[in-house]
């Protein structure tokens, strides 16, 4: 599957090493991407990397991707300027099962750069706000300067029908919000665990602790979904690079129900 050429239409700096790119097709567009899905983004001459969609699903053919400069490929992508061309393959993977949360409370838990893969699902839920119970977003970052999509978070926080709590691991005196890990926000978050669905993204260890706290609150394991963003290569289930237990993340994931993924998360060095 050859990458389709897209042009960088807009670029925004989120933090010191995280950037958001908005991409428009030069000619042919990939199929409409859904929240939770990802594309393989190709920086010509450097290589490609799987990056989740961070866009509002209503945006149509325009793609939004948010990435941290981790290594060669992501550094190359983050260095792309408006007008530059990148290649796009996809969309790949499954989407957040937002419909399973209809009529229930929805709890989003994001850690670090885990907010971008959830952002589209938050937009989706808010676009159909009446179809859901309480909507809660718990977002944890390393420090105030490393929070992404701050203007979205502030806008959501100002709504009367969304409960947003933000916390950071450390902060100076000028930060007037919560300090501590994101899992600490779970016990006092306003939702009914017996009638809620949770979507969680972040570093694996954070997802494990968040899942434990949600289950301790009384959320059934079947109502808990995570996104696995481990390294992968081909994106189409051929190379086996992203195999985890019986599953290939690129083909069957990256979104999994917690009880399906839990046994594999606790196995060292997979």
């Amino acid at each position: 599957m050859a990458p389709l050429p897209y042009v960088v239409a807009r670029k925004r700096r989120e933090t010191r090493d995280v950037w958001t790119l908005e991409l428009e097709p030069v000619d042919e567009a990939i199929e409409q991407i859904r929240p939770g899905q990802f594309t393989m983004l190709y920086r010509f001459g450097v290589g490609e990397a799987p990056i989740s969609s961070s866009g509002d699903p209503e945006l149509g053919f325009r793609l939004v991707h948010t990435m941290r400069e981790a290594g060669q490929v992501t550094r190359g992508l983050c260095a792309a300027k408006p007008g530059d061309l990148v290649g796009v393959r996809g969309p790949f993977g499954n989407a957040w099962p937002v419909d399973t949360a209809r009529g229930k409370d929805v709890v989003f838990v994001a850690g670090g750069i885990g907010l971008p893969p959830l952002r589209g699902a938050v937009y989706d839920v808010l676009a159909h706000r009446n179809g859901f119970g309480r909507v809660v977003l718990l977002y944890g970052g390393r420090s105030p300067g490393e929070l992404v999509f701050r203007s979205d978070v502030e806008r959501w926080r100002s709504r009367l029908d969304v409960d947003v709590e933000v916390t950071v691991d450390t902060a100076g005196h000028d930060w007037r919000g919560n300090v501590g890990v994101v899992t600490k926000l779970i016990p006092r978050a306003p939702f009914d665990p017996a009638n809620a669905v949770a979507f969680v993204v972040g570093p694996e260890i954070m997802m494990r602790f968040a899942a434990a706290a949600l289950i301790e609150r009384g959320l059934p394991q079947e109502s808990l979904w995570i996104s696995m963003e481990r390294t992968m290569r081909c994106g189409v289930g051929l190379c086996g690079h992203c195999q985890l237990g019986p599953t290939l993340i690129c083909r069957d994931g990256p979104v999994y129900r917690w009880d399906e993924m839990r046994p594999w998360l606790e196995v060292a060095a997979l």
Binding site: I113, G141, V181, V201, F209, E229
Partner: peptide, 17 residues
């Protein structure tokens, strides 16, 4: 203690995703 351990791990530091 658990929360502090998680904070010390600096999980957002070099992990992606």
């Amino acid at each position: 203690l658990q929360a502090t351990r998680l904070q010390l791990m600096d999980v957002y530091g070099d992990n992606v995703g």
